[in-house]
Design a protein around this nucleic acid. Structure first.
Lengths: 152, 152
DNA sequence: TCCATTCGGTTTCAACTTGAAACCATTGCG
DNA sequence: CGCAATGGTTTCAAGTTGAAACCGAATGGA
């Protein structure tokens, strides 16, 4: 075996992100970070993940610029992990995954949790994909195109 | 070791979806399926993945109702893999991941590929998260809430 | 002061997963 | 009939994961 396959250098811009966050734990760490968690111990408790794994994942997320470490504000020797701009960019991925989960993975009769506007407490709208001119695009109504030279 | 950790029964509706698609290959298979691929060989060639792994992933995606097998239209004994409704629901996840990739993972001077409207060939708009009343929500301006009883 | 505890990890090691390559069963075709 | 293509499964070494033990630096209390 050469090595677990990496998509670091794949052409596809879906494959490359998966290299950074493409495992079970990383996205959950990011989710918790959006929920305000910052400390190693908080993540560990929330996720129930083994410490070595958490350690490796945090290191990887920091290496990819998704989290960054900042000195702990309480003056302790430890540091905290906070989302970078790039990390906050994962918000839309989380929302998409979440809405998919709400639609297809919530058991009947199960306490239904969903994403609400923090301000009003009301559910948010479903994500939509729009063309440049505003038309709503259904799944599959897109394709990929090269723009080596900016057209027009 | 008990078993590789599963989030099947996690409360969180972000964790549970990750159980279905939370590895490198599954989402790439779904991406290819959106691109019209249907045959084992097509996926294998496109992804360069070992056949045993592809086989296991396809089985898993079918088991989760993301793909389904249909008899091959050419009358051969083989079948094809096509996206179900649930599978097509992953469109928004792919778009979100893709836009994140476009923003943060495209090397400078690299041939820039992005998602365009199939009809017009023009780039699509960025995803936005909106509150019920239409207000634009920034990353972090949401939270999760329980709706055991429908409020209002 | 000294012992205990918490926090944030690293190390160790067995079980599990991954991937390359070999193998196998059907069908298609000349 | 023979041979290649398709769509897998099997095998096995190497890599990854996870539970638990360990460790070192700071507090925290008695």
């Amino acid at each position: 075996m050469v090595k677990r396959t990496s998509h670091q250098s794949a052409d596809c811009l879906i494959a490359r992100p998966l290299d950074a966050i493409g495992d079970w734990w990383s996205l959950l760490i990011v989710r918790d970070a959006f929920d305000g968690m910052r400390r190693f111990g908080e993540f560990q408790k929330s996720l129930g993940v083994a410490k070595n794994i958490l350690s490796a994942r945090l290191r990887n997320l920091v290496a990819h610029g998704i989290l960054e470490t900042v000195p702990a504000p309480d003056g302790s020797a430890h540091h905290e992990y906070v989302l970078t701009e790039k990390g906050r960019g994962l918000f839309y991925v989380l929302v998409a995954l979440r809405q998919w989960g709400e639609t297809y993975f919530s058991g009947p009769g199960e306490p239904y949790t969903f994403m609400v506007d923090r301000e009003s407490g009301r559910p948010i709208r479903r994500l939509e994909v729009h063309a440049e001119d505003g038309r709503l695009l259904a799944p599959g109504e897109t394709r990929l195109a090269d723009f080596r030279l900016q057209p027009e």
